[in-house]
Amino acid sequence: MNGAPHAIDNSAQRQEVLLTWGDGRQQRLAHAELRRQCPCAQCRALRLQGLAPQVAPQVRVLRLDLQGYGVQLVFSDGHDRGIYPWAYLAQMA
């Protein structure tokens, strides 16, 4: 998948981000799973050590900040360091 999705919607009620890609495919990503898969250096370092970021099930995406090549997600637990490249999101299933 190349480039940005045609549409991106954050649903607080469903606790998911909905991406609609150029080929019409829709992808639903749960807020908590997005937080667990954060690509920031700190979270990646934890995963490389065989650990996982501790994520409360009630964590929410409060804001999406488009960054051109991806999107920065701001979570209700205060975490906002990760920028999720479009290709990274596309491969999350």
Results as ranks from 00 to 15, higher is better:
Leu29Asp: 08
Ile8Phe: 14
Gln13Leu: 06
Ala4His: 07
Glu33Gly: 11
Pro53Lys: 10
Ala56Phe: 04
Val61Lys: 04
Leu62Glu: 13
Gly68Asp: 01
Gly24Val: 00
Leu34Val: 10
Ser11Tyr: 14
Val59Gly: 04
Gly24Arg: 03
Val71Leu: 01
Arg36Pro: 02
Gly3Val: 04
Val55Leu: 07
Leu19Gln: 05
Leu19Cys: 11
Gly70Leu: 01
Ala87Asn: 01
Glu16Gln: 15
Asp9His: 15
Val55Asp: 07
Ala87Glu: 09
Asp77Leu: 05
Gln42Phe: 15
Gln72Cys: 05
Ala87Phe: 00
Gln15His: 06
Ile8Cys: 11
Glu33Ala: 14
His6Cys: 13
Tyr84Lys: 00
His31Tyr: 11
Ala32Gln: 12
Cys43Pro: 07
Val17Ser: 04
Leu89Tyr: 02
Leu34Met: 12
Trp21Gln: 02
Ile83Gln: 02
Asp65Trp: 04
Leu34Tyr: 06
Ala52Ile: 02
Leu73Arg: 06
Ala12Arg: 14
Met1Leu: 13
Gly70Val: 00
Arg60Asp: 10
Leu64His: 04
Asp9Phe: 13
Glu16Tyr: 11
Arg60Cys: 08
Gly24Ile: 02
Arg25Pro: 06
Ala32Thr: 09
Gly78Pro: 01
Tyr84Trp: 03
Gly24Leu: 01
Ile8Pro: 08
Trp86Arg: 00
Arg47Gln: 12
Ala30Gly: 13
Leu19Gly: 04
Ala41Phe: 08
Cys38Phe: 09
Arg14Ala: 14
Cys40Leu: 09
Asp80Glu: 10
Gln37Thr: 08
Gln37Tyr: 08
